[in-house]
């Protein structure tokens, strides 16, 4: 059923992505591919992987941007882009077959591959480019929030997080319950001013992005002036050379 469910719980699982600490290493990208090509939505087909124009299905892509701010200072921002598991996902409601659905229990948006007819309308309805079509299998695929890891009792408890979160070497990706205001991820959002992507479109994404921290204003390099009042050997050398 592609009508949105009446949530049976307040749990809203999702990611909080820190644009301040992401270094664009692509570890989450490859970890996602590695896990999911054998997971719930397997396979994540690659076409012509060793040829002239390799292409394939990925759930997580990391862009790099140059942000030149109003004061003229610029910074490089690495930007991981994946499904935001929206509160009002049009990708679900446009689905004609019931293949796309949002889970009432935890808010995860999934595709039932056995019902998908591959009309691609859901990918048109997603402003974030979260869905990628698998031309080999003929169905749409998307991030599952590693639904086969986070509830997997065969894994040690510490590993029951999405592969992208587990693999991030800088701790830029956080997983948790964004429906619980007391959860660590909710507190992180409150503390750092986490934002929605394209809030103007009204999809109400669950995932939040933490903007880069404000840097100290750039100071000019110190001038080559003599240092006064420094004692010891260095002070003596400084005084001699400053004559």
């Amino acid at each position: 059923m592609t009508s949105l469910p009446h949530a049976t719980s307040d749990v809203r699982l999702g990611l909080v992505i820190d644009l301040d600490t992401c270094v664009g290493c692509q570890a989450c990208v490859t970890a996602c591919k590695e896990w999911n090509t054998g997971g719930h939505m397997a396979p994540l087909t690659d076409y012509d992987p060793y040829g002239a124009a390799p292409d394939g299905v990925w759930f997580n892509r990391v862009h790099s941007y140059e942000h030149t701010k109003a004061d003229g200072c610029g910074e490089t921002v690495h930007f991981p882009r994946s499904c935001l598991h929206c509160e009002t996902p049009a990708c679900v409601t446009v689905c004609p077959t019931g293949a796309s659905y949002k889970r009432a229990s935890d808010g995860i948006v999934l595709v039932d591959e056995d019902k998908c007819i591959g009309c691609k309308l859901c990918s048109w309805a997603c402003p974030y480019g979260a869905r990628e079509f698998d031309t080999d299998v003929g169905v749409m695929k998307k991030c599952t929030l590693c639904v086969d890891r986070i509830y997997n009792e065969n894994l040690p408890e510490a590993d029951r997080v999405p592969a992208c979160v587990a693999s991030c070497p800088t701790g830029a990706r956080h997983f948790g319950d964004l429906g619980d205001p007391a959860s660590p991820v909710s507190q992180l959002i409150a503390e750092r001013g986490g934002v929605d992507l394209m809030p103007e479109l009204g999809y109400r994404p669950t995932n939040k992005y933490l903007p880069p921290r404000t840097r100290k204003a750039a100071e000019p390099a110190p001038a080559l002036t003599a240092t006064d009042g420094v004692g010891g050997l260095l002070g003596w050398v400084d005084r001699i050379l400053s004559r």
Partner: peptide, 14 residues
Amino acid sequence: SATGLKGGMVRSLE
């Protein structure tokens, strides 16, 4: 708005 980066100019680098 797509990246959540406010103000100034955002340019695709890579």
